[in-house]
Simulated scan of single mutants.
Amino acid sequence: MFLVKDFKGFTTYEKVLFAFILIAQIFILVYFWNNGEAFNTLSVISAISSISGVACVIMSAKGRLSTFFYGVIQAATYGYVSYKSFLFGEVSLQVVFGIFQFIGLYAWLKNMHSDHHTDDPDVQEVDSRGLSIRGWLITIAVTALVYVGTGYYLDNFTEAKQPFVDALSVGLSLVAQTLMTLRYKEQWILWIVINMVSIFLWARLMLQNDKLTFEGLSAVTMWVAFLINSVYGYYYWKKLQDVQVTEKY
């Protein structure tokens, strides 16, 4: 089964990153438990969101199909946590992300090659490609339009606490997810910016509420791990573009 096989061929870095987020989540849980925090459904869902999210992005960086399985879990759980935190732009984004998981799975299935790090031919990686100058211009224009439209909507028709910061994350994320589905390595440049915005979003939310929460700290930890992974993802997808089967293009 690909969910198991996709863990083959991992580098030391990838193992360390996944171990880091698991240890970080356990540490956060213990910290809040020792300080008398009452854990509830939201706390559990936050932990699931963080762990499944890291599994999703690590598999995405590796170009593995199981990224979409973990992506569905992460979209559902993170969407719920965002809803409870009044980050409505993030909620709508997760609905779109959930749909994208199935579209991406279909698109990737037709463009895979055997992983060059393992002898198991059943372990597959996606074929990556790069944007042209025209592609970059379209990407920038679409991102700007989505940002302005989303920011206006959130500011005027919702109770979002940070409408234009929220909108920046939404606009960039929609375009980055589209690039991921279409297998462009430049998606990772956008994800780097998105991760920094998201860290700021959750940190600012806790500052506004003047309260350090498990949900907020868990989300910040998750996005920090995402940021590290995004840098690695660009590096790895560039390597994929160099070693992939050229007959497919």
Score class of each variant (00 low, 15 high):
F7V: 03
G9C: 08
F18T: 01
F18E: 01
I21G: 01
L22R: 01
I23F: 12
I23V: 14
F27K: 02
N34G: 12
N40Y: 13
T41G: 13
I45V: 14
S46K: 11
S46V: 12
S50E: 00
S52Q: 04
V54P: 00
C56T: 03
M59L: 13
M59G: 04
K62G: 01
S66K: 10
T67S: 14
A75T: 04
A76Y: 07
G79N: 07
G79T: 07
V81T: 02
Y83A: 07
F86T: 00
V91A: 11
V95N: 05
V96C: 12
I103Q: 11
L105A: 12
H117C: 04
D119A: 06
D119W: 00
D120A: 07
P121S: 12
D122G: 15
Q124G: 04
E125G: 07
G135C: 04
T139F: 03
T139Q: 04
V142H: 10
A144L: 08
V148D: 15
G151Y: 03
Y152F: 11
Y153K: 08
T158Y: 12
E159L: 08
E159P: 00
A160D: 15
V170A: 08
S173W: 15
Q177T: 15
L182I: 09
K185W: 03
E186Y: 05
I189F: 05
I189H: 03
M196K: 08
L207W: 10
L207F: 09
Q208K: 02
N209L: 05
N209D: 09
F214A: 15
F214L: 15
L217G: 06
A219M: 11
M222R: 02
M222S: 02
A225R: 07
L227A: 14
L227M: 10
N229D: 06
S230L: 00
V243E: 14
Y249W: 09
